[in-house]
Design a protein around this nucleic acid. Structure first.
Lengths: 353, 353
DNA sequence: AAAATTTGTGCAATCGATTGTATTTTTATA
DNA sequence: TATAAAAATACAATCGATTGCACAAATTTT
């Protein structure tokens, strides 16, 4: 008796096996292939049959098994996405943009985070290849300096990079114009009569940081502004990184009066430390960040920064990806899209002269 | 000639078809089933054979086709996640926690956003069912008032809810103790000698908002604090919602001296409006929020709020899910886990008396 | 040395949908 | 009416991995 009750629980609780085209075919006394064709609107079938099949499918709430279809078609309609992490608003915005475009074209997203570790990046690629994604859209982790681990995935699926892209290889990519953004920030600071502009920079092997630095140096030299090697610090783009750099800069005989930070969190660190030291921002010290994190709008003073248009980057990446897969025959040249970011001038760098 | 060149491009550019167990079997002169067993460490095989197979698999960088395995096993090792959106830090933290635990157990995540729309929620469920996920972990959208659309998915896959959970049905769920959090915030405000505490509340059909309100009302009545229906506003949890409520509250003859907001963005709206009106926070007006969004730490004054421990919620949800699937036979009672949130007292509600 | 085990592999069916080819049915034409 | 053409549908193989069962080889037991 006991066991019967037990069995009853199993039956009720375990997920019911789903309806297949064979079930439908049996009930309609037709073959499974006809059912398949009916559901896919194959022109070889009569409308009458199509109607009958669709009606029954609707009645039973038939759900096609995508795995079976994918296996047969050799195409999963899923694309993998790897980002350093989804916490940062820039990346979650990119994902939003990707999803918007790709889901409209019938693709699913499988999202992985590298947490800035090469190991995780490799593992994520494995996972996505096993899941037989049709393509991988990714942004490199901080630790990724060489691209060997991408070689065999490149052979198996279509790849596309956004934001943190390989410097060397010929691949489809979407980035923003970090160079101009940094250049224009310097120009803005100069207009605000800041004379000694320092730079807290990120690691040079990451293209975005390299470009921001290049924009800074180019602007400084073209505008013939004061400069000094003492004003350049490579740091982590974190609050602590910003604080550390700030204290070192303020300890100099010849301290700067403005700091271009390659990231918002570093800018925030500078701001916190400045407030603690009683240095007036923006009057005595101008600060700019990068990324337009939500908090930059609400600090006191609010922080000038660069809106990287994540959603737009995501959309462009998705569109470029779709274009590349619909162009299988054609000679494919790597396409590199550059999105113009938008400078947002706020209190931290705006002073009345 | 032209066509040959064309073909050449096709071959080079199109993803190479991947190695299968049959390829390995052929090369080793054994059967595919033996290869499969070797790779799965089946005890019936000799170590010698296993070694040979594994070595060759490594050499060719063999990737098992998960779709084929899933199809055969009737189990995809993928779980679907539906959140209102991934931009909000609470949800991205939950996803982080889910991923941490589930990926360690060999599961992949497929993430969908409802953007607070019932339509999107339904579509996401369809998509996940088609992808044959093993389970769906979700948080309801704002628009979801009735649960009919969940009925058939409940029959097909295991479901689990977090944060925004169904009020009625018996299902596994993970929530935080919103009631106590709100209760304790009121108690904290009372300790700070605020006498007239208002409440900007969310929609009552969402459990989290209902619980926050209940905590507020219970505290007010148990502590015998002043109260008035004029001090209660249901609003959207946005900056604008907070601003609107603030102006209405300040227009009263008997204005409150503290506002318990059911969300951080509303609290931020209140803060912005108060600053604009020259009302001193926290001296003249106490403010508290909910969610510990990043910006709450960096506003001036910083905002007191509730840390909802998203990562922990995500981990618990994942663990509960794993427990539930490993317990197929057993009588399954719905389990409801409640995480204790952490109150974070900052400047916006802390005054020296 | 013959019989009984144990161990190692192969065969073939299976998961569910798709699709080239074959077959049947219907309609049009001679 | 017989025949050709067109339309509708069925058959069977396929995608790649898994697994129950059968069978063969090696080992142990009697």
């Amino acid at each position: 008796m006991q066991s019967i009750v037990f069995l009853y629980f199993c039956i009720v609780k375990s997920p019911k096996s789903q309806i297949t085209i064979h079930d439908l075919a049996r009930e309609l006394n037709i073959s499974a292939s006809t059912v398949s064709r009916a559901l896919n609107n194959n022109p070889r079938l009569s409308n009458k049959t199509k109607e009958r099949v669709k009606k029954l499918a609707a009645k039973y709430n038939y759900q096609p098994n995508k795995m079976a279809a994918s296996l047969r078609k050799g195409k999963s309609n899923t694309v993998g996405v790897i980002v350093p992490n989804i916490y940062r608003s820039y990346f979650s915005n990119i994902i939003g943009g990707l999803e918007e475009v790709l889901s409209a074209s019938g693709y699913n997203l499988m999202i992985c985070q590298s947490h800035e570790k090469l190991e995780n990046e490799k593992a994520a690629i494995q996972t996505l290849l096993n899941a037989r994604v049709d393509g991988i859209l990714m942004s490199l982790s901080m630790e990724t300096k060489n691209l060997e681990h991408l070689e065999h995935s490149r052979k198996q699926v279509r790849m596309l990079f956004f934001d943190r892209v390989p410097l060397s290889t010929q691949v489809n990519s979407v980035i923003i114009d970090d160079f101009s953004a940094a250049y224009n920030l310097v120009s803005h600071l100069a207009k605000m009569a800041y004379k000694k502009i320092a730079h807290i920079k990120g690691a040079d092997h990451i293209n975005v940081y390299a470009e921001r630095s290049r924009g800074y140096f180019t602007a400084i030299s073209e505008m013939k502004l004061d400069h000094s090697n003492d004003w350049i610090f490579e740091e982590e783009m974190t609050i602590e990184g910003g604080e550390r750099a700030f204290y070192k800069l303020m300890a100099l005989d010849n301290s700067p009066d403005a700091i271009l930070c390659a990231g918002d969190f570093a800018a925030l660190g500078v701001l916190k430390a400045a407030r603690k030291q009683g240095i007036a921002v923006p009057r005595e010290l101008g600060i700019t960040g990068f990324a337009n994190e939500t908090f930059t709008e609400f600090t006191t003073p609010s922080i000038s920064t660069v809106h990287q248009k994540g959603i737009e980057v995501g959309r462009s990446a998705a569109e470029l990806y779709l274009r590349s897969i619909n162009n299988v025959g054609g000679k494919q040249k790597a396409e590199n899209i550059v999105i113009k970011p938008e400078l947002i001038f706020r209190e931290s760098s705006t002073r009345n002269l």
